[in-house]
Amino acid sequence: MSSGTLVDQLEALLFVTESPATLESLASALRVTMGQVEQGLELLEQRLSERGAIRLIKIAGGYQLCTKEEYAVAVADFLQPQRRTLSRALMEVLAVIVYRQPITIAEIDATRGIASEYGVRSLVERRLIREVGRRPTPGRPVLYGTTQQFLHHFKLNDLKELPPVEIKAKDAE
């Protein structure tokens, strides 16, 4: 199989996929090695960046095609998507979960100093967080962690891309 053909095939697969495609799934579908897929994706990324309105990005642990930012206004005018940006309070709850996961609601409350149950419920509904288990303590409270959708929502490939945070000194509070 020539590399040109592989790049075209990868483009076709990524065109039809509705969620990030992993290296493994692409390699398995095209019956090639993951190294070949990686090389093909590099070529595809380069080719798309040079022309057209689509680009290839690494997101939520996989690869996906999306529109280039310069066409954002035109696409938004056409699709008129519902804006679902998070409020400051929801963002705060999410940030606590992101940096301290897996975490219980009680721990989130203790960290923020206010009740966070509503925020947690909203984030679960938005599929940005999910139950990841239960803490083996009295009451077996639910532990929450982030989802693939969280990575997708913030265009992250991995949680390692999150900015580091510092622990506040006690007297600074």
Partner: peptide, 8 residues
Amino acid sequence: SYDLEEAI
């Protein structure tokens, strides 16, 4: 207590 301001 984490300083989450920047992260948010």
